[in-house]
Protein backbone atom coordinates (compact mmCIF):
# COMPACT_ATOMS: atom_id res chain seq x y z
CA UNK A 1 0.00 0.00 0.00
CA UNK A 2 1.24 3.46 -0.89
CA UNK A 3 1.95 5.95 1.86
CA UNK A 4 -1.11 8.14 2.51
CA UNK A 5 -0.73 11.69 1.21
CA UNK A 6 -3.42 13.15 3.40
CA UNK A 7 -3.92 11.64 6.83
CA UNK A 8 -6.61 12.56 9.33
CA UNK A 9 -6.29 11.25 12.86
CA UNK A 10 -8.85 11.75 15.60
CA UNK A 11 -10.30 14.69 13.72
CA UNK A 12 -13.25 16.57 15.26
CA UNK A 13 -14.91 19.61 13.72
CA UNK A 14 -17.45 21.80 15.46
CA UNK A 15 -19.75 24.53 14.22
CA UNK A 16 -20.34 26.43 17.41
CA UNK A 17 -21.84 23.93 19.84
CA UNK A 18 -22.74 21.48 17.10
CA UNK A 19 -20.20 18.80 16.33
CA UNK A 20 -20.04 18.07 12.61
CA UNK A 21 -17.29 15.45 12.50
CA UNK A 22 -16.52 12.86 15.15
CA UNK A 23 -13.10 11.34 15.59
CA UNK A 24 -12.27 10.81 11.91
CA UNK A 25 -9.33 8.60 10.95
CA UNK A 26 -8.94 8.60 7.19
CA UNK A 27 -6.05 8.12 4.80
CA UNK A 28 -6.12 9.59 1.33
CA UNK A 29 -3.58 8.18 -1.05
CA UNK A 30 -1.65 10.08 -3.67
CA UNK A 31 -2.63 9.84 -7.34
CA UNK A 32 -5.91 8.21 -6.56
CA UNK A 33 -9.45 9.44 -6.68
CA UNK A 34 -11.02 9.19 -3.25
CA UNK A 35 -14.78 9.54 -3.16
CA UNK A 36 -16.58 10.71 -0.04
CA UNK A 37 -20.15 9.49 0.05
CA UNK A 38 -22.97 9.63 2.53
CA UNK A 39 -26.38 11.18 3.05
CA UNK A 40 -26.83 14.96 3.25
CA UNK A 41 -25.42 16.48 6.40
CA UNK A 42 -23.18 13.49 7.04
CA UNK A 43 -20.06 15.66 7.21
CA UNK A 44 -18.45 14.71 3.91
CA UNK A 45 -18.41 18.31 2.64
CA UNK A 46 -17.17 19.50 6.01
CA UNK A 47 -14.30 17.03 5.77
CA UNK A 48 -13.49 18.27 2.26
CA UNK A 49 -13.52 21.91 3.31
CA UNK A 50 -11.33 21.14 6.26
CA UNK A 51 -8.54 20.00 3.94
CA UNK A 52 -8.04 23.44 2.33
CA UNK A 53 -9.31 25.27 5.40
CA UNK A 54 -12.27 26.84 3.63
CA UNK A 55 -14.04 26.30 6.92
CA UNK A 56 -11.95 29.14 8.32
CA UNK A 57 -14.42 31.46 6.57
CA UNK A 58 -17.18 30.24 8.83
CA UNK A 59 -17.19 32.00 12.15
CA UNK A 60 -17.04 29.75 15.22
CA UNK A 61 -15.90 26.71 13.24
CA UNK A 62 -13.46 24.79 15.42
CA UNK A 63 -10.99 22.04 14.54
CA UNK A 64 -9.53 19.49 16.84
CA UNK A 65 -7.21 16.56 16.17
CA UNK A 66 -4.63 16.04 13.48
CA UNK A 67 -4.75 16.53 9.73
CA UNK A 68 -1.57 16.15 7.73
CA UNK A 69 -0.85 16.78 4.08
CA UNK A 70 2.44 15.35 2.91
CA UNK A 71 3.53 15.02 6.53
CA UNK A 72 2.73 18.63 7.44
CA UNK A 73 0.04 19.68 9.87
CA UNK A 74 -2.65 21.72 8.13
CA UNK A 75 -3.96 23.28 11.33
CA UNK A 76 -0.78 24.80 12.59
CA UNK A 77 -0.03 28.42 13.40
CA UNK A 78 2.91 28.33 10.97
CA UNK A 79 0.63 27.42 8.05
CA UNK A 80 -0.31 30.22 5.66
CA UNK A 81 -3.73 29.43 4.21
CA UNK A 82 -2.82 31.17 0.96
CA UNK A 83 0.09 28.79 0.48
CA UNK A 84 -2.14 25.87 1.46
CA UNK A 85 -4.87 26.79 -1.01
CA UNK A 86 -2.36 27.39 -3.78
CA UNK A 87 -1.43 23.72 -3.43
CA UNK A 88 -4.84 22.31 -2.57
CA UNK A 89 -7.23 23.44 -5.27
CA UNK A 90 -10.99 23.24 -5.13
CA UNK A 91 -13.82 22.82 -7.62
CA UNK A 92 -17.30 23.71 -6.44
CA UNK A 93 -20.73 22.23 -6.82
CA UNK A 94 -22.07 24.96 -9.06
CA UNK A 95 -19.77 26.00 -11.89
CA UNK A 96 -18.57 29.44 -10.77
CA UNK A 97 -16.35 31.01 -13.40
CA UNK A 98 -15.37 34.59 -12.61
CA UNK A 99 -17.36 37.19 -14.56
CA UNK A 100 -14.34 37.68 -16.78
CA UNK A 101 -13.06 36.25 -20.04
CA UNK A 102 -12.16 32.58 -20.41
CA UNK A 103 -8.50 33.52 -20.61
CA UNK A 104 -8.61 35.70 -17.51
CA UNK A 105 -10.39 32.98 -15.58
CA UNK A 106 -7.52 30.57 -16.11
CA UNK A 107 -4.82 33.24 -15.86
CA UNK A 108 -6.08 34.62 -12.56
CA UNK A 109 -4.39 32.10 -10.29
CA UNK A 110 -1.16 32.36 -12.26
CA UNK A 111 -1.25 36.14 -11.97
CA UNK A 112 -1.85 36.40 -8.24
CA UNK A 113 0.77 33.81 -7.43
CA UNK A 114 3.23 35.31 -9.92
CA UNK A 115 3.66 31.95 -11.63
CA UNK A 116 4.21 33.32 -15.11
CA UNK A 117 7.17 35.60 -15.71
CA UNK A 118 6.16 36.78 -19.15
CA UNK A 119 3.09 37.25 -21.25
CA UNK A 120 3.98 34.36 -23.53
CA UNK A 121 4.57 32.08 -20.58
CA UNK A 122 1.19 33.08 -19.21
CA UNK A 123 -0.43 32.24 -22.53
CA UNK A 124 1.38 28.90 -22.69
CA UNK A 125 0.28 27.92 -19.23
CA UNK A 126 -3.30 28.97 -19.85
CA UNK A 127 -3.29 26.89 -23.03
CA UNK A 128 -1.75 23.92 -21.19
CA UNK A 129 -4.38 24.15 -18.46
CA UNK A 130 -7.25 24.34 -20.91
CA UNK A 131 -5.82 21.39 -22.82
CA UNK A 132 -5.45 19.38 -19.64
CA UNK A 133 -9.05 20.13 -18.84
CA UNK A 134 -10.07 18.95 -22.30
CA UNK A 135 -11.57 22.32 -23.14
CA UNK A 136 -9.00 23.77 -25.54
CA UNK A 137 -10.43 22.36 -28.76
CA UNK A 138 -13.85 23.71 -27.99
CA UNK A 139 -12.91 27.27 -27.06
CA UNK A 140 -9.46 27.95 -28.56
CA UNK A 141 -10.80 30.66 -30.85
CA UNK A 142 -12.91 32.47 -28.28
CA UNK A 143 -10.64 32.93 -25.26
CA UNK A 144 -11.78 36.54 -24.92
CA UNK A 145 -15.42 35.64 -24.43
CA UNK A 146 -16.96 35.69 -20.99
CA UNK A 147 -16.56 32.50 -18.99
CA UNK A 148 -20.25 32.25 -18.25
CA UNK A 149 -21.14 32.18 -21.95
CA UNK A 150 -20.08 28.52 -21.94
CA UNK A 151 -22.38 25.58 -21.29
CA UNK A 152 -22.63 24.20 -17.76
CA UNK A 153 -20.27 21.33 -18.43
CA UNK A 154 -17.77 23.59 -20.17
CA UNK A 155 -17.96 26.06 -17.29
CA UNK A 156 -17.14 23.29 -14.85
CA UNK A 157 -14.18 22.21 -16.99
CA UNK A 158 -13.12 25.86 -17.08
CA UNK A 159 -13.18 25.85 -13.29
CA UNK A 160 -11.06 22.69 -13.33
CA UNK A 161 -8.65 24.34 -15.78
CA UNK A 162 -8.49 27.38 -13.50
CA UNK A 163 -7.65 25.10 -10.59
CA UNK A 164 -4.97 23.04 -12.31
CA UNK A 165 -3.38 26.16 -13.81
CA UNK A 166 -1.59 26.77 -10.50
CA UNK A 167 -0.59 23.09 -10.43
CA UNK A 168 -1.79 22.07 -6.99
CA UNK A 169 -0.92 18.73 -5.42
CA UNK A 170 -4.48 17.98 -4.41
CA UNK A 171 -7.77 18.83 -6.08
CA UNK A 172 -10.88 18.88 -3.92
CA UNK A 173 -14.19 18.55 -5.71
CA UNK A 174 -17.49 19.28 -4.03
CA UNK A 175 -20.19 17.50 -6.05
CA UNK A 176 -18.78 18.86 -9.31
CA UNK A 177 -21.40 17.21 -11.53
CA UNK A 178 -24.56 17.78 -9.53
CA UNK A 179 -25.64 20.63 -11.82
CA UNK A 180 -24.77 18.88 -15.06
CA UNK A 181 -26.54 16.60 -17.51
CA UNK A 182 -25.37 12.96 -17.92
CA UNK A 183 -23.24 13.60 -21.02
CA UNK A 184 -21.44 16.59 -19.44
CA UNK A 185 -21.07 14.48 -16.31
CA UNK A 186 -19.47 11.67 -18.29
CA UNK A 187 -17.01 14.11 -19.87
CA UNK A 188 -16.03 15.45 -16.44
CA UNK A 189 -15.72 11.93 -15.05
CA UNK A 190 -13.41 10.98 -17.89
CA UNK A 191 -11.39 14.13 -17.19
CA UNK A 192 -11.14 13.32 -13.48
CA UNK A 193 -9.86 9.88 -14.36
CA UNK A 194 -7.13 11.32 -16.57
CA UNK A 195 -6.17 13.97 -13.99
CA UNK A 196 -5.51 11.22 -11.47
CA UNK A 197 -2.04 10.65 -12.95
CA UNK A 198 -0.83 14.04 -11.79
CA UNK A 199 -3.01 14.98 -8.84
CA UNK A 200 -4.56 13.44 -5.78
CA UNK A 201 -8.27 13.99 -6.06
CA UNK A 202 -10.85 13.99 -3.29
CA UNK A 203 -14.41 14.17 -4.52
CA UNK A 204 -17.64 14.54 -2.61
CA UNK A 205 -20.54 13.09 -4.51
CA UNK A 206 -24.19 12.39 -3.92
CA UNK A 207 -24.24 9.85 -6.69
CA UNK A 208 -23.04 6.50 -5.45
CA UNK A 209 -22.73 5.32 -9.00
CA UNK A 210 -20.45 8.23 -9.77
CA UNK A 211 -18.28 7.30 -6.81
CA UNK A 212 -18.23 3.73 -8.09
CA UNK A 213 -17.35 4.82 -11.61
CA UNK A 214 -14.51 7.22 -10.95
CA UNK A 215 -12.91 6.51 -7.61
CA UNK A 216 -10.35 4.00 -6.48
CA UNK A 217 -11.06 4.59 -2.82
CA UNK A 218 -14.36 5.33 -1.16
CA UNK A 219 -15.16 6.62 2.31
CA UNK A 220 -18.68 6.44 3.69
CA UNK A 221 -19.75 9.05 6.22
CA UNK A 222 -22.88 8.93 8.30
CA UNK A 223 -24.01 11.46 10.92
CA UNK A 224 -20.53 12.95 11.21
CA UNK A 225 -18.74 9.64 11.59
CA UNK A 226 -16.62 7.72 9.15
CA UNK A 227 -18.42 4.37 8.90
CA UNK A 228 -16.19 2.65 6.43
CA UNK A 229 -13.36 3.40 4.01
CA UNK A 230 -11.76 1.10 1.53
CA UNK A 231 -11.15 0.19 -2.07
CA UNK A 232 -14.10 1.24 -4.17
CA UNK A 233 -14.49 -2.23 -5.69
CA UNK A 234 -14.75 -3.79 -2.30
CA UNK A 235 -17.07 -1.06 -0.99
CA UNK A 236 -19.51 -1.56 -3.83
CA UNK A 237 -19.46 -5.35 -3.93
CA UNK A 238 -18.92 -6.50 -0.39
CA UNK A 239 -19.06 -3.63 2.08
CA UNK A 240 -18.04 -4.65 5.57
CA UNK A 241 -20.59 -2.57 7.43
CA UNK A 242 -24.32 -3.10 7.16
CA UNK A 243 -24.87 0.69 7.24
CA UNK A 244 -22.72 1.05 4.15
CA UNK A 245 -24.56 -1.80 2.45
CA UNK A 246 -27.90 -0.17 3.22
CA UNK A 247 -26.76 3.22 1.98
CA UNK A 248 -25.22 2.12 -1.30
CA UNK A 249 -28.12 -0.18 -2.14
CA UNK A 250 -30.65 2.50 -1.21
CA UNK A 251 -32.17 0.81 1.79
CA UNK A 252 -33.54 2.50 4.87
CA UNK A 253 -31.88 0.00 7.23
Amino acid sequence: MTRPFIAARGMNVFYGDKQALFDIDLDIEANKVTALIGPSGCGKSTFLRTINRMNDLIANCRFDGSLQIGGQQVYDTAVDVVALRAQVGMVFQKPNPFPKSIFDNVAYGLKIHGLASSKSELQDRVEWSLKSAGLWDEIANRLDQPGNSLSGGQQQRLCIARTIAVQPKVILMDEPCSALDPIATAVIEDLIDSLREDYSIVIVTHSMHQAARISQRTAFFHLGRLIEAGDTTQMFTTPREEQTQNYITGRTG
Binding site: M54, L84, R85, F92, F98, H113, T163
Partner: peptide, 23 residues
Protein backbone atom coordinates in the same frame (compact mmCIF):
# COMPACT_ATOMS: atom_id res chain seq x y z
CA UNK B 1 -22.78 39.46 -5.29
CA UNK B 2 -22.91 35.65 -5.36
CA UNK B 3 -20.51 34.39 -2.66
CA UNK B 4 -19.29 31.81 -5.16
CA UNK B 5 -16.94 34.32 -6.81
CA UNK B 6 -15.22 35.11 -3.55
CA UNK B 7 -15.10 31.44 -2.60
CA UNK B 8 -13.58 30.51 -5.94
CA UNK B 9 -10.92 33.19 -5.61
CA UNK B 10 -10.09 32.20 -2.04
CA UNK B 11 -9.91 28.53 -3.02
CA UNK B 12 -7.40 29.49 -5.71
CA UNK B 13 -5.24 31.05 -3.02
CA UNK B 14 -6.19 34.71 -3.39
CA UNK B 15 -5.89 36.76 -0.21
CA UNK B 16 -9.21 38.07 1.11
CA UNK B 17 -8.40 41.58 -0.10
CA UNK B 18 -7.53 40.26 -3.56
CA UNK B 19 -10.72 38.23 -3.68
CA UNK B 20 -12.82 41.26 -2.79
CA UNK B 21 -11.09 43.80 -5.02
CA UNK B 22 -10.65 41.52 -8.03
CA UNK B 23 -13.99 39.78 -8.05
Amino acid sequence: VPPSFKEAALALGATPVQAVFHH
